[in-house]
Simulated assay, not measured.
Amino acid sequence: MQNRLREMRQRASLTQEDLALRTGVTRQALSAIEKGAVIPNTATALTLAQIFHCRVEDLFFLDERPSFHMPGMRVGDPLILARIAGQTVVHAGRQEGNRRLDAVLPNARVSEVRGAHIRVMNAAYGAHPDEVFLVAGCDSALGLWVQAINLAAGKTVAYWINCDNQTARAYLAEKRVHAVATHFGQGLSFDEDKEVKARLQFTRYRLGFGFAGERFAPPDAERIKAMRLVNRPRGAGARQALDRWSHENDAHVDTLAGYDVELPSHAHVAEAVACRFADLGVMPEPEAYACNLDFVSLSEDSSVLSFAVDLVHPVVSHALQTLASDRFLATLKISGPYDVSTLGRMLT
Rank of each mutant, 00 (worst) to 15 (best):
K333L: 11
A278L: 03
F277D: 08
N150H: 02
I39H: 10
L21I: 13
P71C: 07
L329Q: 13
S317F: 13
K175R: 15
N98D: 02
L320E: 08
V253A: 11
A238H: 10
A49F: 13
E112A: 12
M283N: 01
V56S: 03
A158L: 00
Q321L: 14
R27Q: 14
A278G: 02
V269I: 09
R228V: 08
V89I: 12
A274G: 06
N162K: 03
R169S: 12
C54N: 02
A49G: 04
F328I: 06
L229C: 10
H183G: 06
F52E: 04
A123T: 12
R11M: 13
P284S: 08
R94D: 01
T167G: 01
V282E: 03
V304S: 06
R109K: 13
A141E: 00
Q10G: 09
V157M: 05
H69C: 03
M346G: 02
Y289W: 14
V75P: 04
V89M: 07
D58H: 11
G213K: 10
I118L: 13
A308R: 05
E96L: 12
A330R: 15
T47Q: 15
H266V: 01
A226I: 13
L263F: 15
D243T: 09
H266W: 09
S67P: 09
R6Q: 07
A236L: 06
Q50F: 11
P233T: 03
D310E: 13
V146S: 00
V282M: 09
C291N: 09
N249C: 05
S317Q: 15
M346L: 15
E248I: 00
L298I: 13
G281A: 12
A179Q: 01
R74Y: 13
K194R: 14
E17I: 12
F216Y: 14
S341T: 12
V132M: 08
H69S: 01
L305N: 01
F133M: 04
S303F: 12
Q186W: 07
A148C: 08
A43I: 10
N165C: 10
T331D: 06
D301K: 05
S31V: 05
Q321K: 14
V38D: 05
R6A: 09
P314H: 12
G137N: 00
R228D: 11
R65P: 06
L329M: 09
R99W: 00
E248Q: 11
G115W: 15
E34L: 12
V135Q: 01
A278N: 02
F202C: 02
R232V: 03
A29N: 08
L14D: 09
H117P: 01
R244L: 08
L105E: 05
R6G: 01
R74A: 13
M227A: 11
E7F: 11
A173H: 08
A153V: 04
T255N: 11
V312T: 15
L5T: 05
R100G: 00
E262C: 04
V309D: 06
V261E: 09
C54P: 09
F202A: 03
V340T: 14
S317D: 14
E300R: 12
K155R: 15
L343R: 04
R100D: 00
R345W: 06
D58C: 02
R169D: 04
L151P: 00
A226C: 14
D220H: 12
F52K: 01
L323D: 01
G281D: 08
S140Q: 00
D139Y: 04
D250I: 14
L134H: 07
D63V: 01
A168E: 03
V113Y: 09
S306M: 08
A29V: 11
R223D: 04
E7P: 10
T348K: 15
C138T: 04
G210F: 09
